[in-house]
């Protein structure tokens, strides 16, 4: 679905429905599980997004209100099929999650105490960790290697993982760091070099 081989709108909407419906039905383990799915399915397998676009989507998803999974679904849907695509992808993501709760709500205590459900979930949780760790490595390879990036990444990791600080502040900090380090600094250097 890259430009140049754009299928019809109906086909794109169907593909969005199936893909995000699947994501809605199998994501466990928080918003970053869907990031790992997007990386694997949409960047690696289908080529609907570039890794750079995925970075931008996560950044926007983290720094705007609402669940990250919903934000990314709307954004990807919009990129592929406009406003209708955004709505369809989001609805497809939400539907399985809604349906499962509607079904389970009547007997949720039994569901919670069922040892088979717990066993499957324990395995799925381990798989989700592996999946997110893999996305961490792959996405890490997409960031230019330099000291400033290493410090920014390590600072975010330590503050959120070990100190439990709010991730939002680090996304905002990263955006400011980017403006200064990758925007203002080279411009100042260029001006200094070209000066009298």
């Amino acid at each position: 679905m890259r430009p140049g081989q754009t299928p019809s709108l109906a086909k794109r909407l169907l593909a969005l429905t199936l893909t995000f419906g699947k994501f809605g039905g199998i994501t466990f383990g928080g918003g970053y599980a869907i990031v790992a799915l997007l990386e694997d399915e949409l960047v690696r397998k289908k080529g609907w997004l570039t890794q750079d676009e995925l970075f931008n989507i996560i950044t926007i998803g983290e720094s705007t209100p609402g669940p990250i999974a919903v934000n990314t679904a709307t954004f990807v849907g919009y990129r592929l099929a406009g406003v209708l695509g955004g709505v369809v992808a989001t609805a497809a993501l939400v539907f399985p999650a809604w349906l499962v709760i509607v079904i389970v709500s009547g007997f949720y205590l039994q569901f919670r105490e069922n040892t088979w459900v717990a066993a499957a979930l324990a395995g799925i949780r381990v798989a989700a960790i592996v999946l997110i760790a893999r996305a961490f490595i792959r996405m890490g390879q997409g960031v230019p290697r330099n000291a400033a990036n290493a410090i920014a990444g390590a600072l975010a990791f330590v503050s959120v993982a070990l100190l439990g600080l709010n991730a939002l502040w680090f996304v905002v900090g990263g955006l400011l760091f980017g403006v200064l380090w990758y925007g203002v600094r080279p411009r100042l250097a260029a001006r200094g070099g070209a000066g009298p």
Partner: peptide
């Protein structure tokens, strides 16, 4: 600039 932070997150 947000990229390394996203990886950290």
């Amino acid at each position: 600039g947000a990229k390394p932070v996203v990886v950290g997150l």
